[in-house]
Nucleic acid binder design. Structure first.
Lengths: 122, 122
DNA sequence: GGAGAGATGATATTCGATTCTCAGTTATCT
DNA sequence: AGATAACTGAGAATCGAATATCATCTCTCC
């Protein structure tokens, strides 16, 4: 197996994904390439430090990562396969929810349900 | 300290909160009452089983709990004090984000920023 | 007042996610 | 090729959250 290219392997896998991936999710996608879990974590951490990646926290605890160059978007979290899909577009009416005195700096919208693949498999 | 009433103490503290509380957050609010952390977890678990409580997962990993009788709402998560506030009201345009073939069963909206207290303290 | 069932607090344990360690590998530069 | 520095995989170690354990305590019902 090649060495010193694993960081690229990790970044490429993230770039090709249709949503943010957790370290383990990413690792399992790379099984067969011989990349170790520690290397995945190292590549992710470095990617964040260097500004190429962004960490995303959704429901369910785990931290996921995705390329930082994606435009504003949100997520669909499949409750069956636990995969998060990017959703481009946004919602209206956010500002009206904010109480007086609170400062709004960002927002996160997560849609829950069943993805296409899991819905058909059921 | 009184016994056999700790479950009520926990439920009451949750009912009085302005948003969902994590087990630890709840526990720290009960410091001085002598309630143990294990009892907090037990009371929360039982509350969920009995249908009085609902567990909520927001960004940041932890699970929070709140009374189940609250109407549909979302949350404001203060990035300074990490407390979650209930926000009543909802947003528009959710359905248009869902891709073909995906089944939508729920959604979660979390606004991020600084709460009134933390904003003034800064 | 005493027995039994259920509850409680302190702590040990478990569990999963992430980080650390280290020896071996690979790239770079000369 | 040789020296050095950076990278890597595997497993150990760490960390925090949640759960289990156990002796003690409280309530209820005789």
């Amino acid at each position: 197996m090649e060495r010193a290219k694993q960081q690229l392997t990790v970044l490429r896998a993230l770039a090709e994904a249709d949503g943010p991936l957790s370290a383990r999710e990413l690792w399992s996608r790379l099984s067969g390439t011989g990349v170790g879990l520690a290397t995945v974590y190292r590549a992710l951490q470095r990617g964040v430090e260097e500004g190429m990646l962004e960490s995303v926290e959704l429901l369910g605890g785990g931290v996921r990562y995705e390329p930082k160059d994606r435009e504003h978007h949100h997520y669909f979290l499949c409750s069956t396969c636990d995969h998060a899909f990017d959703l481009y577009g946004c919602v209206d009416g956010l500002e009206s929810l904010v109480p007086d005195g609170f400062q709004l700096t960002g927002h996160e919208v997560v849609l829950l349900g069943t993805c296409d693949a899991c819905g058909n498999a059921a």
